[in-house]
Computed example of a mutant assay.
Amino acid sequence: RMGENVDYEQLSDDRLTPLARQRLTQTTLIKQNFAQLGLATPDAMLQQTIMRTPEFQVDGKFSNERMTRVLADTGFNLNILKSKLAEDQRANQLRAGIGQSGFAITQNTELLLKIINESRKINWVALELAQVQGDLQISDSEIADYYDTNSSEFYTELRVDAEYLLIDQQALQQPVESAAVLAEYKSQQAQFESSERRELAHILLEINQQQSEDQAREKARQVIQRHRDGASFAELAAEISQDPGTATEGGLLG
């Protein structure tokens, strides 16, 4: 089977001789125990083994002629074959018996027997609740004190019942054309509109004994020009308006 890769060192006498000696020693020891252990192989079992041997079959059936020819070619006869098979089967029985055997030390065996044969005596008394309770009364404060002292016994694992809706953003995203967006806006435009609101502010210039109408008009033109030049209306109102109620508020009327 090794072919060109054969390692001749593995076939040297120095390696094969110890292996052969060990095998012969084991075989001899096993044979010596056959008689002591009462191991035997029934002839019917040997016959079945022979008939099931593929080398002795033709088209899947046992052939006595083929068996005789094969045995003759190998230098065996039927008696030698049966003797060899019997030895092999008894050896297998011995190996299986040893491999499947177990042992226990005396201490373990005694302990196991004690456990198996162990018995216990138990005495008990059955009490009715009414007999024990009697006139016993427990106040609410005693119940509260017991609860506060042993509150950990009444805790349960925190649980939360939650309802939720899972929304897949990718599934909701659909391409929308600009025209469709504009049409939707126009259909809902009223929601985005609010009524027009205006705020009214003024700068009051009084016409009285200290200021004539012409003087008031001239001052008004100056105020208008300053506002056009960039001055803040609120600052002009605070500076010039003669309305004490709105001057400090930038002239705002509402």
Rank of each mutant, 00 (worst) to 15 (best):
R1C: 15
Y8S: 12
S12I: 01
P18W: 11
Q22N: 14
T25L: 14
T28H: 07
I30S: 10
I30C: 08
F34M: 01
Q36K: 12
L37I: 12
T41I: 08
D43K: 11
M45W: 02
M45R: 03
M51S: 05
N64K: 08
R66M: 03
F76Y: 05
L78K: 15
K82M: 14
L85T: 02
D88A: 14
D88T: 10
R90E: 11
A91G: 13
I98F: 00
F103W: 15
F103Y: 14
T106Y: 12
L111C: 06
L111M: 08
K114C: 09
I116R: 07
S119P: 01
S119N: 07
S119D: 07
K121T: 12
I122A: 15
A130N: 10
L136C: 05
I138H: 03
D140P: 02
D140M: 06
Y146M: 05
Y147N: 02
Y147K: 00
S151P: 07
E153K: 15
F154V: 08
R159P: 06
A162M: 11
L165F: 05
L166G: 10
I167Y: 08
Q169V: 11
Q170A: 07
Q174D: 06
V176I: 03
V176R: 02
E177D: 07
S178H: 10
A180R: 07
A183E: 10
Y185M: 06
Y185H: 02
K186S: 06
K186L: 04
Q189L: 03
Q191S: 08
R198Y: 01
D214M: 14
D214N: 13
Q222H: 08
I224Q: 08
Q225F: 00
Q225A: 05
H227T: 01
D229A: 14
A231I: 09
S232N: 14
F233E: 04
A234M: 15
E235K: 12
A238N: 14
S241T: 09
S241Y: 03
G245P: 02
A247R: 05
E249P: 03
